[in-house]
């Protein structure tokens, strides 16, 4: 049997998303960003909305997201992505507007903008990558760093008396009247990847249909920052991260928020 006989459109179950640029990503092997980027590209392509999509990239490892996903992008100052997204969506209400932010960007320096955008019920999607560490600057403590977890700025492990407690911001956001969909996903197994993709699709549809703010947290591995192999990082994430940040939907208002 020839290769062309096997690879036919009717047999095809997967192909590279056209909206994912053919460039080398700067992400470390084992990092979750690449998988999430691919899912974002896939979902935008499947929905056929690239013509009206605006992404807002953060400061952090994903600052160069605009080099990888072939849609229009704004690059935000550190933590301010949801403020930018607020204006874009209000000025272009038919657009799909999403931010892509890490835990430092979203839940430390940007906490004020994050909470208020959600509270106003801005019709945007927030993709929140929680890997419990500052990846880009070299592995410092994040608000989401677990107790006992060692980082460059808590080298003996995070202590509550010195550093306070890990911040689970997503449940806070689920309590706000402005959020319509708040979910926590991961992309470390094929099954989780599929679930995460479905969550992104739902969130993106919410933005286009102006149903309120959608927050998709992806509990992610940073094997470099955690100083583990990719495989061990996934295992550490399952054993430690999921205990503090359990996966699943926290809120899902089918008809959107009340206005």
């Amino acid at each position: 049997m020839e290769l062309n006989d096997i690879i036919k459109p009717e047999n095809k179950v997967y192909s590279e998303p056209k909206l994912l640029n053919r460039v080398h990503m700067h992400y470390c092997p084992g990092c979750s960003h690449g998988v999430v980027h691919k899912l974002v590209a896939q979902v935008i392509e499947e929905m056929g909305v690239a013509e009206k999509t605006v992404g807002i990239s953060p400061v952090g490892c994903a600052v160069f997201a605009y080099n990888y996903i072939d849609v229009d992008w704004e690059e935000a100052p550190h933590g301010r992505a949801t403020a930018l997204a607020t204006a874009v969506k209000r000025l272009w209400p038919e657009n799909l507007v999403f931010t892509y932010q890490g835990d430092g960007d979203f839940s430390a320096i940007g906490t004020c903008e994050s909470i208020h955008a959600c509270n106003r019920g801005e019709n945007i999607v927030i993709i929140f990558i929680n890997n419990a560490i500052y990846g880009m600057t070299g592995g410092q403590m994040a608000p989401t760093t677990l107790l006992g977890q060692k980082t460059a700025t808590c080298p003996y492990g995070r202590r509550p008396d010195l550093n306070g407690y890990p911040l689970a911001i997503t449940p806070l956001l689920a309590q706000l009247d402005g959020t319509c969909y708040v979910t926590r996903q991961s992309v470390h197994t094929p099954a989780n990847v599929r679930k995460a993709k479905a969550a992104l699709r739902k969130a993106f549809e919410n933005s286009i249909n102006c149903k309120g703010t959608s927050v998709v947290e992806i509990v992610s591995a940073c094997n470099t920052g955690w100083k583990l192999t990719p495989e061990k990082a996934n295992k550490w994430m399952e054993e430690n991260m999921f205990a503090k940040y359990p996966l699943g939907d926290l809120k899902d208002l089918k008809d959107g928020i009340q206005r």
Binding site: E74, R80, L84, A87, V88
Partner: peptide, 12 residues
């Protein structure tokens, strides 16, 4: 937030 909303809007 206000200046960043201006920034977000200006870029469009």
């Amino acid at each position: 937030a206000a200046i960043n909303m201006v920034y977000g809007g200006a870029m469009t």
